[in-house]
Design a binder for these strands. Structure first.
Lengths: 412, 412
DNA sequence: TTTAGTAAGTAAAACGTTTTACCACAATCG
DNA sequence: CGATTGTGGTAAAACGTTTTACTTACTAAA
């Protein structure tokens, strides 16, 4: 803006403005008529003039002006209202668009919107959240962002939220169960409209209980079942059944199991696998079960398997990572896949499958899970908003067997 | 709490309470003397009694009580103050511990703290942030959380912040430059006390400029240099120099370069590499430069390199991922490493180096970088708080050559 | 005996929104 | 012509803290 425009807008002569400037020590330059003045400086001036018009004792006025200066002309809703000549509440309603119960004339609406953009008004979401009790932000807590499948899930959730213009912020647990939640516990309740917990945390029950007390909408995605929290899980039983049927049909009768049973889902898969073997009349050979807790241990397990006197004809790994690793170890030890040994994965997020070994695996449809999780969280938030109670639901998603070239009939 | 305790605390007979309950339709059960009553119900009761004592017109009282009921006895600082018999401001000062300019007697302090825990008071961080203009939360934006090195950096930043009890929330860009920031732009300014941008975003300059206008403290970590933003970078020139010297000393004279030049740091590394070759008097062979944009392309590049009429004696990859991949491709093609070809990586976050091929690489000390970034951001926040302007700084971190068994002298 | 200083607080404004309750005016209806 | 119903707003309270400017009671010094 230029000085002469401002003089017009204020309806005061330049001399008066200069006097005020000096009296209250404003840092606005009013030297040249054609000088450009920033919106913020203009706002400061307007605020000062308004403060002067209030007929307060001199002392109070000085205080007010000092605060205005300190605030550096930050533009608030009331500046927009003042500039557009309307009330604050009206500006709020127009810029929010959510309260459409009250009619507003098209003309005023345009004027306010124009003023807001002209002044560069940016709403303060903190104030908004305080008053409305809604932040518009969803939190995501991820057990381990290093896990490709969990990462895929978060990404899908993020994409889903992008569609509805919500923001999602995440915190991750860095292998320490519950740490992320412990860390954000203090804020979780007020900052987030809802929370998605991705992956199963070992100590999550305690945390779930705390969250329930806080009455925050929560959905657990790919975590464990809990009677008080809505969950979206993948049907491990079905996945392993499909996989086992595939292996059995190929003729495998001696199958090793490799999985990190720190994860609830892996525990489920193992139990199903044991049952299936029993049902199929296969021996319950404990020496073929391996439960490594990390990749280093997993490598050792695979080496042990390959060195067994009677090695199995197939290795069922409960993650694509482990499977890829097992395949690598086997290849480097001179085995051929799938001729010498069949190796299968789980998860189906092995982005590199075309590069390394194309794995037979179980794909868990992460997009579908993300969609369901978001839908359920939205439902909870809506119900919560109406001050009502919601009942948790459990959604179980069907996985799909993907057959690639890491599995074949065993050698005779 | 029990009913008789409450009667004592209120100093009113049960009958009077029951009357109030019926009159204002409170959902608190006051039937049995020995009945347990939740803290929240007790708070509701106290608030109602207080509202009644205010001598307002009946209508206003009803309004107030309705609001109290709607609020479900959410415990605020003023409840604690009321219960402890002190003013609200005092409670704030005691529970915050930050304003120690004012003396407080030990006795009152204990009483207030005891009351707060007894009522289960949890501060509302939104209200706090609104008034104090500090959220205590640092934002982190990551270009690609799938990149192991960036993930390591974020993790180190997170650990550093954990030490100082701050919370860090992140958003990630999902391969789309600037998307994360676009998404969180609206909130960034008010929700976060500062922002760490991890990795180089292609369109980050625009975003930097916007952030500067918002006067939000920002540090760019492992990103590109920018005159208006503080940066913490790794010295690519030094890293490549060390690596080149190693290869040259081993006797390599024909070195292929494989790197994703979408990243600024890779561009820097390439330029340094070109200069070093020139200085060493090696031919400037364009056919040995490969710039794949993803892993699939990278695999193809490596295949092409191996199929060259006169293949190079070494492949310099600008990431451990590419190098690992190149090694795999080479091994599967029947080459031996390092006997047949030398392959080097960059970054030094290859967590699996003991499993696959132990790579010669350049380690960039991520912890050190994280510490510096956090320190610098804290500095900016402090200066910002005092209403002063800060000058951006550039911190360059020295990488370190790690020699493992993927590099050796070329075959004669 | 006044004065100054200090310990231990209090009262109220402020942060920037949203939301509630109300109002003026015009048009319509019986 | 008076009552009713929309239309297009306004004024002010409320959200739950933090912070500023006062206050009171007591002690020590002059």
């Amino acid at each position: 803006m230029f000085l002469n425009e401002i003089v017009d807008a204020c309806g005061m002569p330049v001399e008066a403005l200069r006097e005020i400037k000096i009296k209250y020590n404003l840092s606005i330059s009013l030297e040249d008529e054609t000088q450009e003045i920033s919106i913020n400086d203009y706002i400061i001036l307007r605020k000062v003039l308004y403060a002067l018009s209030e007929k307060l004792p001199e002392e109070k006025i000085r205080q007010k002006i000092n605060r205005i200066i300190k605030n550096k002309g930050n533009i608030t809703i009331s500046d927009v209202a003042m500039e557009a000549g309307v009330s604050v509440g009206l500006v709020s309603r127009i810029l929010n668009k959510r309260d459409n119960s009250i009619k507003i004339s098209e003309e005023t609406k345009n004027r306010i919107e124009e003023t807001a953009t002209r002044l560069g008004y940016k709403a303060n979401p903190i104030a908004s959240a305080l008053r409305s009790r809604q932040s518009g932000i969803i939190g995501a807590v991820v057990r381990d962002i290093g896990d490709p499948f969990l990462r895929q899930l978060v990404q899908d959730v993020q994409l889903e939220y992008k569609k509805q213009d919500s923001v999602i912020l995440m915190s991750h647990a860095m292998h320490e169960a519950g740490m992320a939640l412990q860390q954000i516990k203090h804020i979780v309740n007020y900052w987030f409209d809802g929370l998605i917990i991705v992956g199963d945390m070992v100590e999550d029950i305690i945390i779930y209980n705390e969250l329930i007390n806080n009455s925050l909408p929560v959905v657990s995605l790919a975590g464990r079942n809990h009677e008080k929290v809505s969950t979206v899980t993948f049907d491990d039983e079905s996945g392993i059944k499909q996989l086992f049927a595939h292996l059995y049909d190929l003729g495998h009768r001696s199958i090793a199991f490799v999985g990190n049973i720190l994860h609830t889902s892996v525990q489920n898969r193992m139990h199903t696998f044991i049952n299936l073997q029993r049902e199929a009349g296969l021996p319950d050979d404990k020496s073929l079960f391996f439960t490594p807790k990390n990749t280093t241990e997993a490598v050792q397990c695979v080496k042990n398997i390959l060195n067994l006197e009677k090695p199995p004809t197939a290795i069922l790994c409960t993650s694509d990572d482990f499977a890829q690793l097992a395949a690598n170890v086997a290849i480097q030890a001179g085995w051929k896949i799938p001729e010498d040994i069949t190796i299968t994965g789980y998860n189906g997020t092995n982005e590199l499958h075309e590069l390394y070994i194309p794995l037979t695996t179980v794909r868990q449809p992460s997009e579908q899970a993300a969609v369901e999780a978001v839908k359920e969280l939205n439902r909870q938030i809506q119900i919560n908003l109406q001050g009502m109670e919601y009942k948790p639901v459990n959604i179980n998603i069907e996985p799909e067997l993907i057959i690639r070239s890491s599995s074949a009939a065993p050698r005779k």
